[in-house]
C-alpha cells in the first residue's frame, strides 16, 4: 500500500474508533450531572465546574486520537 494512503487510512481509523470511548464517557458524565440537577436543582452551579473538568478529561482521550490522526495526515507517509 502507498504510504500516504496508509497514513490517511490510519488517521481515519484512529479518529473513528478513538471517538467511541470518549463519546460514551461524555454521555455518561452529562447524564449523571443532569440527573443530579433534576433531583436537586440548587446544586446546578456547584456541579458545573467539576462536570466541565470531567468532560475535559474524557475529551482528552479523543484529543490524543486527534493529535495522532493529524500527525499521520501532516507528517506521516512522507
Amino acid at each position: 500500500m502507498d504510504p500516504k494512503v496508509a497514513a490517511n487510512l490510519g488517521a481515519a481509523f484512529a479518529m473513528g474508533i478513538g471517538s467511541i470511548g470518549p463519546g460514551l464517557g461524555i454521555g455518561m458524565g452529562v447524564r449523571a450531572a443532569m440527573e443530579a440537577i433534576g433531583r436537586n436543582p440548587e446544586a446546578a452551579d456547584r456541579l458545573f465546574t467539576p462536570m466541565i473538568v470531567g468532560l475535559g478529561l474524557a475529551e482528552a482521550v479523543a484529543i490524543y486520537c486527534l493529535v495522532t490522526a493529524l500527525a499521520l495526515i501532516f507528517v506521516g507517509g512522507g
Binding site: G56, A60, I63, Y64, L66, V67, L70
Partner: peptide, 16 residues
C-alpha cells in the same frame, strides 16, 4: 504528556 498533549491537541485541532 497529558497536560501538554491535551492543550496542544485542542487548540491545534480547533485551528485545523
Amino acid at each position: 504528556l497529558s497536560l501538554s498533549a491535551r492543550l496542544f491537541g485542542n487548540i491545534f485541532g480547533g485551528d485545523v
